[in-house]
Design a protein around this nucleic acid. Structure first.
Length: 885
RNA sequence: GGGCGAAUAGCUCAGCUGGUUAGAGCACCUGCUUUACACGCAGGGGGUCGUAGGUUCGAAUCCUACUUCGCCCA
């Protein structure tokens, strides 16, 4: 394949711009992102949640796209025919709002342009700005199959929308009806129930007297939080068993201000405990009152215009906004002595999820989807395990919502979106749902068919996304291969908006669930754990972070905090730590390459080398084999933070801190080319695997470094996922090396605590330790802790410090350097620590139940540990006596 | 009112199906131009895992109740 030039030598610290730049273009051109329709490989498919065309990359996209790209690259390397299908959403209200805002700057409204010109203008806007987000996703490294990119208003997808609508309409699952719906006066459209956000607002409870018609001096005390709705009252209600109001049935009250006579009705909906036990009934402006009104055949008086001002039914208050009317009405009531009291009161108020305006319940004719049967199918599929939730706990949330589902209001009174494919005959009013404008109505009236003016809820088309993007309603090869998709990766906040609707639509129209797994990941919050929002001003721009830390560091940060919590905090500290990690990996590679250059020709590790491997080689290869198994499982199970952490620790704390330190002398031993070649072969083998394991998370730096390693190399994207290396694993060698590590640490601790100058070379002697003088292990000890000489001793040499290790003792010959007090204190500390430990094990072993019930290996392990610790204590005590004498 | 999530080191958080001397990063203390990396190296201090019960031979982990914080739905 064509590649970026990787000839230049590596500078001494990692520079994300020069490392990351260029790779994306190479990848995209090479065609590795493309899924195949003619292959034997098993399919794996992710359909990407389409960002709004109006959008620009925010932290939420960064996380979700990093996670999807991670899965995509991982599965591709595992040998799957991977399809990651991208696209954008027309985002009806949001996009229309953006373009209207632009128009406002020109002093115009959409009505000045007219529908057709306005929609044209939105399309122009989309052509101009709609690619911003997809360009930014490329910057993040997203390896989507752009050849299959879709937009929800593409002709094909629009056709799918019409087909679905018409089918549901014909099956009577879509219907049109006058109902009370949520209305946003600013967007001037209806909203579905879940598009309303309820927020607690500090308001007031207004107590108003409604005088009796039969006794105007007396009346009922009604409490309300929205006094202006009084204008639409058509009754007041009390509980039928409320003794306070017995005998009032059939009587009426005089509606204040408007002086309409309205009945007192009895309804069990009224809560006797709450307020005065009297409720005003406004069927056209309150959901509960609407129900009551239906039960009592009350008149529905709409007092609002679509823009939220009061209409002619408001009499003298006509033209005022709700807020102004409330103020005026309260004043007027007070002037008439009808306002009894005002109390502060906190209550929930619905707000438009797009613009934040207070939403009004509004009586109007809208289109609805009947949800019950669709929801039942989705519930059944989940119950039968056809779709699995990750984390599992979201399943309950999903089921609760579907079990209580209300019909979905799908019509929107805006212009940008899929227009409802229903035509009404201007002559006979007959309605027809059709893909295209019919020339005549079924009754034969020609040229009079008018299309419904409304458009569909954006989420209606999103609900079809997993199959509409693959060409449905045509029978396509993509659908055949990739549907149902493998996993839906998205954040939990759109579980109802999107995931649930896709489930229902997928089952209804494809007969199968749209995805086998739903992985609901976290939401990224700011460093204080607060949700990011424009109004709070705490939004972090991922592109700035990419400039500052690099894409790989950002991606690694996101994966290491993705712990399936609801919110995860993004901190600079974490970003710095990730950047340092990328730098560490980069420098480790640089070091390995420096060791390789100038020597004999590089030969990769082969099974025949196994007999000649040193202890540290066996250890690192064994650890690698364990890490491969762990990390592969973590990738498969979306344990993202875990795999990031495992790799971080393996690379930094094992590979760099120990293995590279161990092989330094071998790699630089020009005199022994065979030994050097072996060390080189092992270190390259391990690094090669590390790069592949990290590639799904850090695509750029791993690709760059991959090409620097010896051997002819194609893109790492085409490399195979690391295989289990059981043949290379040697658990005995691993244990033995870990013992050696303990010895090294013990010597270092002694040196440090006894203030031995770091540069001083020290003579060590050993007692009862398996560390043959002159063995490779003893050489390692020498290199790793600045030891000049190792000898064997029968007893503790004078003026020496002690390090007790498993099975034996190490003595540091310190000549005049030793501080006896410090030495005694150090050993006393060590002794106390061990005694505490011994006590806890003794407790366990003294417990017969434990010995009987616990697994045998565990009991054995405890016994061994007890013995080892006791041995150490004896040695320390012996030496403490020695120090005293 | 119903439901969900969180509570572990000074801070931010890991800890998957119950068994490790409870871990990491940052911060802190001591020392270091050691054949890549000071975006580094070595060593160290710091936690009765929110509270109270229970199950178990064994609980940070499972169960119950409670407290505090956050979120969703009505």
């Amino acid at each position: 394949m064509e590649t970026k030039s990787t000839e230049n030598p590596l500078p001494s610290s990692y520079d994300p711009k020069s490392v990351e730049g260029g790779w994306y273009e190479v990848w995209e051109k090479s065609g590795v992102f493309k899924a195949s329709t003619s292959t034997e490989k098993p399919a794996f498919c992710i359909v990407a949640p389409p960002p709004n065309v109006t959008g620009s990359l925010h932290m939420g996209h960064s996380l979700t796209y990093t996670l999807q790209d991670m899965v995509t690259r991982f599965r591709r390397m595992q040998g799957y025919n991977m399809l990651w299908l991208p696209g954008t959403d027309h985002a009806g209200i949001a996009t229309q709002n953006v373009v209207e805002k632009e128009l406002r700057k020109e002093g115009k409204t959409r009505h000045d342009l007219g529908r057709e010109a306005f929609v044209k203008r939105v399309w122009e806007w989309k052509e101009k700005y709609g690619t911003i987000i997809t360009r930014q996703l490329r910057r993040l490294g997203a390896s989507c199959d752009w050849s299959r990119e879709r937009f929800t208003m593409d002709e094909g997808l629009s056709k799918a929308v019409r087909r679905v609508f018409i089918t549901l309409y014909q099956e009577k699952l879509i219907y049109q009806e006058y109902k009370l719906i949520n209305w946003c006066p600013r967007c001037q459209t209806s909203l579905s129930d879940i598009e309303v956000e309820h927020k607690a607002v500090q308001g007031h409870f207004y107590h108003i007297r409604y005088p009796f018609v039969h006794d105007p001096a007396d009346g009922l005390e009604v409490a309300t939080t929205r006094p202006e709705t009084l204008l639409g009252d058509t009754a007041v209600a009390v509980h039928p068993e409320d003794d306070r109001y017995a005998g009032l049935e059939g009587k009426s009250v005089d509606l204040p201000l408007l002086h309409r006579r309205i009945p007192i009705i009895m309804d069990e909906y009224v809560d006797r405990e709450f307020g005065t036990g009297v409720v005003k009934i406004t069927p056209a402006h309150d959901f509960n009152d609407f129900q009551v009104g239906n039960r009592h055949q009350l008149q529905r008086i709409n007092i609002l215009n679509p823009d939220g001002t009061l209409n002619e039914n408001a009499g003298p208050y006509k033209g005022l906004t709700v807020a102004a009317a409330r103020k005026k009405i309260v004043e007027d009531l007070e002037a008439q002595g009808l306002l009894l009291k005002v109390e502060p009161h906190q209550h929930n108020v619905g707000h438009c999820y797009r613009c934040g305006t207070v939403v009004e319940p509004y009586y109007s004719k809208q289109w609805f989807v009947r949800m019950k049967t669709l929801a039942e199918a989705a519930l059944k599929a989940v119950a039968e395990g056809e779709t699995r939730f990750i984390p599992e706990s979201w399943r309950g949330e999903f089921e609760r919502w579907l079990n209580n589902i209300q019909d979905w209001c799908i019509s929107r009174q805006i212009w940008w979106g899929h227009r409802i494919p229903v035509y009404t005959c201007g002559v006979c009013q007959i309605q027809v749902a059709a893909e295209e404008a019919p020339p005549a109505c079924p009754n034969g009236h020609r040229g009079n068919m008018a299309q419904d003016p409304d458009v569909l809820d954006t989420w209606f088309s999103s609900g079809l996304w997993p199959f509409s993007t693959m060409g449905w309603p045509e029978k396509t090869k993509d659908l055949e291969i990739f549907y149902p998709t493998s996993v839906m990766v998205t954040s939990w906040d759109i579980l109802f908006f999107w995931v649930a609707r896709m489930m229902m639509m997928g089952l209804k129209f494809m007969g199968q669930v749209p995805f086998k797994e739903v992985y609901l990941h976290s939401l990224v919050a700011d460093a204080e754990g607060k949700k990011m929002s424009k109004s709070k001003g705490n939004v972090v721009d991922p592109l700035e972070l990419i400039d500052q830390f690099g894409t790989d560091a950002l991606r690694f940060t996101l994966t290491s905090i993705e712990t399936k919590q609801r919110y995860v905090a993004l901190t600079n500290q974490k970003l710095e730590s990730s950047r340092n990690f990328v730098n560490k990996l980069y420098n480790a590679t640089r070091f390995v390459l420096m060791g390789l250059s100038g020597g004999a020709e590089f030969k990769p590790l082969s099974p025949s080398d196994q007999a000649r491997l040193r202890l540290e080689d066996k250890w690192i290869l064994t650890r690698l084999s364990i890490v491969i198994v762990e990390v592969t499982k973590d990738y498969e199970k979306y344990r993202v933070a875990e795999l990031s952490q495992t790799l971080y620790r393996f690379v930094w704390n094992e590979f760099c801190d120990w293995y590279l330190e161990c092989i330094k002398p071998r790699l630089y031993a020009e005199a022994d080319p065979v030994e050097k070649g072996l060390a080189a072969a092992v270190v390259v083998e391990v690094l090669d695997n590390i790069l592949r394991l990290l590639h799904p998370v850090m695509p750029f730096v791993t690709e760059e470094l991959w090409h620097k390693l010896p051997g002819k190399r194609e893109s790492i994207m085409k490399a195979q996922w690391p295989k289990n290396m059981e043949d290379m694993a040697d658990l005995n060698a691993k244990d033995k090396f870990e013992e050696l590590k303990d010895m090294v640490t013990a010597v270092r601790t002694s040196r440090s605590e006894l203030n031995v100058p770091p540069s001083a070379q020290v003579h060590i002697s050993t007692k009862d330790v398996r560390l043959p003088v002159g063995s490779p292990e003893s050489t390692l000890l020498k290199t790793l802790c600045r030891v000049s000489e190792i000898t064997e001793a029968r007893s503790r040499p004078p003026k020496s410090a002690l390090a007790v290790v498993k099975g034996g003792e190490l003595y540091l010959h310190l000549e005049g350097l030793i501080d006896l007090k410090a030495e005694a204190a150090k050993q006393e500390k060590e002794r106390q620590k061990l005694e505490k430990y011994v006590l806890s094990i003794q407790g366990k072993l003294a417990n017969e139940q434990f010995v009987q019930n616990a697994p045998e290996e565990l009991v054995e392990a405890e016994k061994t540990k007890l013995q080892e610790s006791r041995d150490k204590i004896i040695r320390i005590e012996h030496n403490l006596k020695f120090l005293e004498s």
